[in-house]
Amino acid sequence: MAELLGTHPLEAWSTALERLPDTVGITVEPFVAMAVVRLGAVGAAASEALGADLPTMPNTWAQHGTGRAVWLGPDEWLLSSTTETPEELEGRIRAAVLPLGGSATDVSAQRIGLRLTGARLRDVLAKGCSIDLHPRVFGRGSSAQTLLGQAGVVLLALSGAGDDFVVLVRSSFAGYLADWLLDAALEFTPTHDS
């Protein structure tokens, strides 16, 4: 059997990302466990079983234990955990929602996270995303499943100032998105010493 390589999909981009100025900072988020939850009936029973409310407002996310619960659809959420293994997260969520007719699927390997910070980050994102990311509209707790460039992403707003985002992208699109972001950030990146 082929040997598994323990490398991050964006390993080859680390030097280019490190060179970016603070106004358009891009860092690779640590690996976290993620699970997709499908559940038709959200309510007190679901909140009690999961230990937290699932966000029912479209385009929002909420803190969920050590991780996040992201609204993906009227009966679909993306849950993450920074302390559990993928198996533990999937097992715990499945045990909680199965009696309510729901399901949980481990999707930890599906997406990786990029943390985007800085004052010019919204200008970078605006080049490939028509959603209004001004904090007045897209404040802390907002989320969106959308296209960034040509890649499908989940975008999360972490700050009420519009300068702190997480973008979740499928691993096979990560290289494309990193290239796209570096290109979009070029005008905010000093290219030579002056």
Binding site: P58, N59, G73, P74, S130, I131, A144, Q145, T146, L147
Partner: peptide, 17 residues
């Protein structure tokens, strides 16, 4: 690009549909 209003997500670019 034309925006189409998703009844759940709100206005989005038509290539998303």
């Amino acid at each position: 690009m034309q925006l189409i209003e998703c009844p759940w997500c709100g206005p989005r670019e038509e290539v998303e549909f």
